[in-house]
Simulated scan of single mutants.
Amino acid sequence: MMHDHYTNAYLAEILSKAHNVAIVGASTNDRRPSQWIAGFLLGKGYHVFPVNPLHAGETILGRTVYASLADIPEPIDLVDVFRRSEYLDSVVDEVLAMTPRPAAIWTQLGVRDDKAAARAEAAGISVVMNRALVSEYPLVYEATHRPHRDGPAHAA
């Protein structure tokens, strides 16, 4: 897949099907975007699992921080990556070792590694790179609240 553009349907499908979200590179600093996204996702009803080996066992927004993706005790649907591009390949290694595997990997603005993405996609994992998840979230509302032909808008 080319990662220069994503359809709204592709992004909405990933976000609307995710329930458990791991945030790799989660920060205990409330001025960091990873913490803002964690709070945003918690507010939208997602189950958030912060991942940062430097803060394992601590909490971020009341959620236990895990050292690695393998330490999370529940299946993960979406891995949201807040690490630099040069670390994405190792994150993909961790994702590919998970059972069950997440449906998708999402990397935040400025994070892109096409070779790592191709490895994930070859394993059936959807990938979004260099996109702010919070900016795309309105697509979920749009996808799940479209009006029926014969009636008002509804929640899916």
Rank of each mutant, 00 (worst) to 15 (best):
D80W: 02
S126P: 00
Q108H: 14
M129V: 10
P102H: 06
T64R: 10
D4N: 15
S34T: 06
P50C: 04
L41D: 01
N20D: 14
K115T: 11
I72C: 10
H19F: 08
A156W: 05
T64S: 10
G43W: 05
L54R: 12
V128R: 01
S85I: 00
D71R: 09
P33E: 02
N52W: 06
S68N: 07
V48A: 03
F82P: 08
S16L: 12
V140M: 10
P147Q: 11
V81K: 07
A97H: 11
A9R: 15
W36C: 00
E94M: 09
E58W: 07
V92H: 08
A156M: 05
Y141K: 13
H145D: 10
Y6M: 09
T59D: 14
Y6C: 10
S90G: 09
I76Q: 05
L11T: 03
M129K: 04
R84Y: 01
A9L: 11
I76A: 07
A116K: 11
F49C: 00
I37L: 13
L109A: 14
G151E: 03
T59P: 12
H55F: 12
V134H: 04
D4E: 15
N130H: 05
V134E: 15
H47M: 02
H55C: 13
R112S: 12
L88I: 08
T144A: 01
D114I: 15
G151V: 02
A70F: 11
P75W: 04
R131Q: 12
V51G: 07
A103D: 11
L61K: 10
V91I: 15
A117I: 04
L133Y: 03
V81S: 07
M2V: 13
S16H: 14
V95F: 05
G110Y: 03
A122K: 09
Y10W: 07
I72K: 04
A132T: 13
N8M: 06
A123W: 04
A118H: 05
L78R: 13
M129S: 10
A118G: 06
D80R: 04
L54A: 15
S27F: 01
I23S: 03
S27M: 06
P147V: 11
S90C: 02
G39T: 03
E13P: 00
P147C: 09
F49H: 05
G110V: 08
L69A: 09
H145A: 11
V95N: 03
L11E: 08
